[in-house]
Simulated assay, not measured.
Amino acid sequence: MSLSMPDMGVMTDAATISPLALFLQADIVVKVVMLGLLLASIWTWAIIIGFSFTLRGASRKSRAFEQDFWKAEDIDRFYEARGKAEFPAARVMAAGVTEWRRSTAQKVIDREGTRDRLSTAMSSSIAAEVDQLADRLNILATVGSVAPFVGLFGTVWGIMRAFTGIAAAQNSSLAVVAPGIAEALFATAIGLFAAIPAVIAYNRFSHGINRLEAGLTRFADGFYTTLSRELEAQR
């Protein structure tokens, strides 16, 4: 019985289509595409990790603040103690208290005007908080939508180069075609590697921001109701 030796040509071909080899052998245009997509992927993951902590911290602190607020017996004392903190619920309360103090400092209080200004002040504060949180999500949306097409451009360019190589070598065997095709498909793979996490993170974070906005709106509505009752009690 004889043992067949492994085909060294196959082993060499397998080595030449490793990710590093594909990058090194790629055309300069495809290399630029790959590097750009890799940088976009790194940037995306940095945003995902950083924004996860930011959104989680803002939601947790706002919920705790709201729970403690409804347990407080004196709104002014609670505001002086915790109303100047730097997270969304505290800033919404600060906007309401600031407008309340301005509107009720007059000798003659315009009740309807005060209610309108309170509602506008807190609604504007909520919108500002949401806009500030959602600002960096535009990057995730851009990467998620553009990265596949950039990778596709690298794929098309690589395939064109592969066909050019076939024409020059006048040989259409798999050994000639495989490296160029693999290089082209590798660009698409990197594009998807950058786009998929960006799209998933964007949808997840958008849901989290919507939940935070809904919580802030409920808090503002409750605080508005409390101030409205206080306004009715004043003569």
Rank of each mutant, 00 (worst) to 15 (best):
G165F: 02
Q67R: 15
M5L: 15
R91A: 07
A121G: 05
R63W: 11
S119C: 12
A85L: 13
D135F: 12
A194W: 04
A195S: 13
A182I: 01
V199F: 10
F153H: 02
A187N: 02
R136H: 11
E213P: 07
Y79V: 05
P179C: 00
I42F: 12
V32L: 15
V92G: 00
A214C: 10
S52D: 12
Q106G: 10
T217A: 14
L185N: 03
S4H: 10
A178Y: 00
Y202A: 11
S103K: 14
G158H: 00
Q106M: 15
W45F: 15
T225W: 07
I200D: 14
V97S: 06
R63F: 08
A127P: 06
L118I: 05
I209C: 07
L137G: 04
R102N: 12
S125A: 11
A15I: 03
I42A: 12
A147Y: 06
R117Y: 10
P148I: 08
P88A: 04
A94I: 08
V10W: 03
A95P: 08
K107W: 11
A214T: 15
A21K: 00
Q25F: 04
A15E: 13
P148R: 07
W45Q: 11
R117T: 07
S2H: 14
G191S: 10
L37A: 07
K84F: 14
F186T: 03
A220R: 01
D76Q: 09
S125Q: 04
T12I: 15
D7H: 00
L227Q: 03
G208Q: 15
G57R: 08
A233G: 07
L24P: 01
S59H: 09
G113H: 03
G144C: 08
D135P: 09
V177F: 02
V150G: 04
D7G: 03
A40S: 09
A64K: 14
D135N: 14
A175G: 04
Q132C: 11
F219S: 01
G208I: 09
S125D: 03
L216I: 02
R63D: 14
L20I: 12
A58G: 07
W157T: 02
S59W: 06
A184C: 01
D68C: 12
S145C: 11
